[in-house]
Design a protein around this nucleic acid. Structure first.
Lengths: 229, 229
DNA sequence: TAGGACAATATTGTTTACAAAAGAAGGCGG
DNA sequence: CCGCCTTCTTTTGTAAACAATATTGTCCTA
């Protein structure tokens, strides 16, 4: 019953949401590993809340695809199979290509343009990236910026539900500095095309980027993924 | 405590899921109107379950986008704004275009082909459609068949999360038989292109279809939608 | 009568305790 | 070694209670 990690206390204020946020952050930054089991009793005592909010958070996260609930066995951090990961990339390619085209058009709005420029600023840095975790964050921010510039709220929501972060956390151990360099260069190509308001080029550049990433993933050791059913 | 509508009784078997299914069906077929409030106490007595499973089902459906939860006010059936609906259609266009291309390629697999043919068979019927509810179902089945033929499991999942049904239920009152006829004709064009394994034509046909539907929606009385924030 | 303060009611958010069922683990006899 | 049994852990559902918040109704006053 002792709370080792306190949640921010909101009076009568939806602990279920706090628990979901806590778990979500822990999973996406890798503190909870894919496949790890989440035990109600542990969380209730660790977070100092009762079963109700924990179970409600589980249901929400399960619907969001971050965890998996096996009947009578409980929840575990979701682990994608290689097929699922490739399928997600296939879809992601279409969604981001759409976003890149819309973003290119929207560059004519100066407010959208400056917001975009600010958000992607880090990609122009010459400095070598310190850690893969840093790159992961930069990568996620770049793609999020493109999608935000598209100005389609549903696209933003859908992107969050697709859990690129989940995939990235799973494969992060195999990222080399060479791969990161290539990816960074492609980000710059995409940004340049969008800045130039060249929708065609932006579409092509982001498709290239994601296809290359897809091929990279396919070549990865299979033990990084959940084995196929 | 009396259960007026029994859920199928599974022994110790995840009533939360039964409740979610029940609500989901009731919402999608229009028995629960958009904006209608869902009260825990009513559902517990109507369905004969306690508050726990009901609340868990709420959280899941909220994450799926079928209902909305307002803090301290509870759950209500989600009602889309016109902007949300149009944004969803924009995304949907890309996803279904991808599905149509993949489906065209997959037609070379005879099993996929026969499954597809069977699923879309109703569109060839000459008979006039009896009710808009009938057409809604036929429409949903047609689009689901195209997506299923694409063979991308994640695409199927994502499609379910996009709630075309929710939009359709919202605008169903404005569907005329002329609109239905046009839509049906376009379905046939799409199916013909996929059957011919002409990915380009299928892509174009489904984009046309969805763009027309989008324009139709834009011309609709605004009171059918939630007012913009 | 219109409008506002205030009390009564309804509803949600959370905790606690208990009971039932399923899965996992380990031992035991064959 | 294999199958079966028991035991333990864990999930799942129920019920009752209380606190916190929202809604509604009422009464009073201008």
């Amino acid at each position: 019953m002792r709370a080792t990690r306190e949640l921010k206390a909101e009076p009568h204020g939806r602990k279920e949401v706090s628990v979901a946020d806590y778990l979500s952050a822990a999973i996406l930054n890798g503190r909870f590993a894919p496949g790890q089991r989440l035990i109600e009793a542990e969380l209730t005592s660790d977070l100092g809340v009762s079963r109700g909010p924990v179970r409600e958070a589980f249901r929400r996260l399960s619907a969001e695809g971050l965890i998996e609930i096996v009947p009578n066995r409980g929840a575990m951090v979701r682990r994608l199979s290689i097929v699922e990961a490739l399928e997600l990339f296939e879809i992601r390619t279409e969604l981001e290509a759409l976003a890149a085209r819309l973003a290119s058009v929207n560059m004519k709005d100066p407010r959208v343009r400056t917001a975009f420029e600010e958000a992607i600023a880090p990609i122009w840095s010459i400095e070598p990236r310190h850690s893969t975790a840093d790159y992961l964050l930069e990568n996620q921010r770049f793609h999020a910026a493109v999608i935000a510039a598209a100005g389609n709220g549903q696209l933003v929501k859908l992107n969050q539900q697709m859990h690129l972060s989940l995939i990235m956390a799973q494969i992060s151990s195999s990222l080399t500095s060479h791969v990161i360099g290539t990816s960074l260069h492609e980000h710059r190509m995409i940004a340049t095309a969008i800045r130039a308001r060249d929708a065609e080029a932006a579409d092509a550049a982001i498709r290239d980027h994601l296809h290359r990433a897809q091929e990279f993933m396919r070549a990865m050791p299979p033990e990084l993924f959940r084995r196929e059913d």
